[in-house]
Design a protein around this nucleic acid. Structure first.
Lengths: 107, 107
DNA sequence: CCGAATCCTGGACGATACTG
DNA sequence: CAGTATCGTCCAGGATTCGG
């Protein structure tokens, strides 16, 4: 159906689009990629004025997709750390060109 | 605010996110990149079961962003051709790694 | 016949308050 | 500190219909 010369079959994108097209997904991935590990509050700071619920939702979806790992420590006060999985890091690498392109757009 | 070593400041993304996070934007960019020039109906075929309105909206936004060029010919029957601008082509290049990553996800 | 406008609904997103 | 509960808003996106 699709030629396979220089063309990219985007069929597999179907499922992934729904992930990366979420408003905060790429930002979150990038933030975690930059810092390696972040706590909930840390992410709140990085993602300017994101609502707790939005962050919570985003993290849950990214976990479900196997892109983000969550580690919670049974301490007082509680501590939860988020980081990228191997898949997540690959995605992060894949979006670097996109980030660079965006950075040069000046808009 | 952000270190500039290996980190990527995602501030510029703000505006761009709104573009690429539209469900069909990247697919459309990619389809046009693959074919060079496509008509409305051609895009409809490429983008599996997209609603006409969704495509219309997407194309308008991409035009407004200067990523897609629209040429209409005063013929009978009417013909309208869409293609990528130079900016659009650069974006297309920037998302290739993302598409490849998506393609390997098998999900 | 091809391209686009209208109408409507679901879900993403946000604000705030609250709990373990 | 790390979220959840709840409510409300808004718009992307799908089905249908219109215009040239």
């Amino acid at each position: 159906m699709y030629e396979k010369t220089n063309h990219l079959c985007f069929c597999p994108l179907e499922g992934v689009i729904d992930v990366i097209s979420k408003k905060w997904a790429l930002l979150t991935i990038n933030a975690l990629g930059n810092h390696g590990t972040l706590r909930f509050k840390g992410l709140m700071k990085e993602l300017d004025k994101i609502a707790p619920k939005s962050l919570s939702d985003t993290l849950k979806e990214l976990q479900a997709e196997g892109l983000v790992r969550r580690e919670s420590f049974a301490e007082i006060p509680p501590r939860v750390e988020y980081s990228l999985t191997r898949d997540g890091m690959q995605l992060r690498k894949a979006i670097v060109p996109l980030l660079r392109w965006a950075a040069t757009r000046e808009r």
